[in-house]
Design a protein around this nucleic acid. Structure first.
Length: 474
DNA sequence: GGTCAGTTGGAAGCGTAGCA
DNA sequence: TGCTACGCTTCCAACTGACC
């Protein structure tokens, strides 16, 4: 206990020596016991309970999401995210460290980056809204781009890399930390940061290397724990906080695969319903485009209160947030404002249809494509019927959002160049919709081989990807 | 090792909008 | 009206993984 004189009144500094350790363990216990959880992450059929305050503290992304959407207990559907990654991220946020197999590291970091998890991504960039949300912390980038080497020379090089960081950088870093930590902790971090060494065990994101090495496990630590050098060759301890002063290789625009999230509210009381706008869609226009009528997305909404959906559909469609700041209309690659894009597609929403029906508007006719996938007749009419190529392209634009087309491939097949160019393998487009599209086109163009249809779909994906890259570059 | 299928870079042709 | 820039469509080719 320390006492200081201030204005004649002696003040005492009461310090809980094990404060951080206690807080960490208690947060973990709260999560394990699911006490006071107020947000559910739904991923691959699993439900992961968490606390908004923790997610907000660890991610400006979640913080903004929850601030703008004051639902008492939102359910966030995380599509195209692996549940194991989400679990690991929660572990990281609650405990401050997590073990990730090297083989999973790249994908894990992409998910972390997309969710702007502090300590795993450059939050300074994320705080700058709309700007590239691409780069993981420099040390992680080093990890991903380091040459394969187990010699001490690389360790020295890595050490020199850190040593080249200027004192100003270290001071900046330390001052940033001091905002979160006590001055003592900040000093500790400063001294430890100066002696930080990126381990020579760091494995490059290299496929050849992947195939020949047993991956060490990466252990990432947050600022909650002091940085330390671990001699265990199978563990890499790193302080993710500092991102300055080290040359790095930026991820390309296509490295970023946006997590597709839909925030929906849990069953709420009447009082809660009257208090909040509780239905939100975020980052993913899946529910706002025509394929929302397919069973898959209806499944996603299974937990929703139908009445509430109707009540809030219109307002919520206006509240959609897009990280890209706009969407393409498929025809021209100029960005279409979200509001415009949504207005063009809003009526395809199942609950929006119900709302219109209640108002006496004629029920739009849905055409079955197959595989349980339906499309509005008017959208199908908009498809050019010159040949199978135009039909395929038209259906692709109707069934998949531009972001889906830009970030997915037809089958998700691994492409070896991806590894060489530090570009991740794209996830597959929704198989059911792909099959529906192919079967529909095949029925009307029986002489056309399926491979040709897939090829056209692949062209479409490539074009959207290129357009996305161009937009991001600008 | 051969074949097939999928992904992607790149090029060419065409259409459209903006401008002088 | 002609030019230019831009974007969309289409196709080819290279490369590689999966499969037999």
């Amino acid at each position: 206990m320390e006492g200081t004189e201030l204005g004649g009144d002696q003040q005492f500094c009461l310090r809980w020596n094990n404060f951080q350790a206690n807080i960490t363990s208690q947060f973990e216990a709260l999560r394990d016991d699911e006490d006071f959880v107020d947000v559910t992450l739904a991923c691959e059929g699993h439900r992961l309970e968490a606390h908004k305050v923790v997610l907000s503290a660890c991610s400006p992304y979640f913080k903004e999401l929850f601030k703008n959407n004051p639902c008492p207990h939102p359910i966030i559907f995380m599509r195209d995210c692996e549940v194991s990654h989400v679990r690991a991220l929660l572990q990281f946020m609650y405990v401050g460290q997590v073990n990730i197999a090297q083989a999973q590291l790249s994908a894990f970091l992409r998910t972390a980056d997309a969710l702007q998890i502090r300590g795993l991504t450059d939050c300074s960039q994320h705080n700058d809204k709309k700007v590239n949300r691409k780069s993981p912390p420099s040390q992680l980038r080093n990890l991903l781009s380091a040459k394969p080497s187990h010699s001490t020379s690389s360790s020295k090089a890595a050490s020199q890399n850190v040593e080249s960081t200027s004192a100003d950088d270290l001071d900046k870093s330390a001052s940033r930390r001091s905002e979160r930590n006590s001055p003592d902790v900040a000093r500790n971090n400063l001294s430890e940061e100066a002696s930080f060494q990126t381990s020579s065990q760091m494995r490059p994101n290299n496929d050849d290397y992947n195939q020949t090495c047993n991956y060490p496990t990466l252990r990432v630590k947050t600022d909650l724990e002091a940085t330390e050098i671990n001699n265990d060759e199978n563990e890499i301890l790193m302080d993710p906080g500092d991102s300055e002063g080290v040359d790095h290789k930026d991820f390309s625009a296509t490295d970023l695969l946006e997590p597709k999230m839909e925030v929906m509210e849990q069953e709420a009381s009447d009082e809660e319903r009257s208090s909040f706008q509780q239905l939100y869609y975020h980052e993913n226009n899946a529910l706002a485009n025509p394929f929302a009528t397919i069973q898959g997305n209806i499944d996603l909404m299974a937990g929703m209160n139908a009445e509430l959906r109707d009540e809030n559909a219109e307002e919520d469609n206006k509240s959609v947030v897009s990280a890209g700041g706009g969407r393409w209309d498929g025809r021209r690659s100029r960005p279409v404002p979200d509001a415009v894009w949504l207005e063009q597609h809003r009526r395809a929403l199942p609950f929006a249809l119900k709302r219109e029906n209640e108002r006496g508007a004629p029920a739009p006719r849905l055409i079955k494509l197959g595989e349980g996938v339906e499309i509005r007749e008017e959208l199908l009419r908009g498809v050019k019927w010159g040949d199978y190529r135009k039909v395929t392209r038209g259906l692709a634009a109707a069934l998949f959002s531009p972001m889906e087309l830009a970030t997915c491939s037809v089958t998700g097949q691994r492409w070896s160049r991806a590894g060489q160019e530090s570009r991740p393998t794209k996830p597959p487009l929704d198989r059911r919709r792909v099959h529906a599209l192919i079967s529909y086109v095949s029925r009307h163009f029986p002489d056309v081989e399926v491979s040709r249809i897939k090829q056209v779909l692949a062209y479409k994906c490539k074009e959207n990807c290129a357009a996305l890259r161009m937009r991001t570059a600008r």
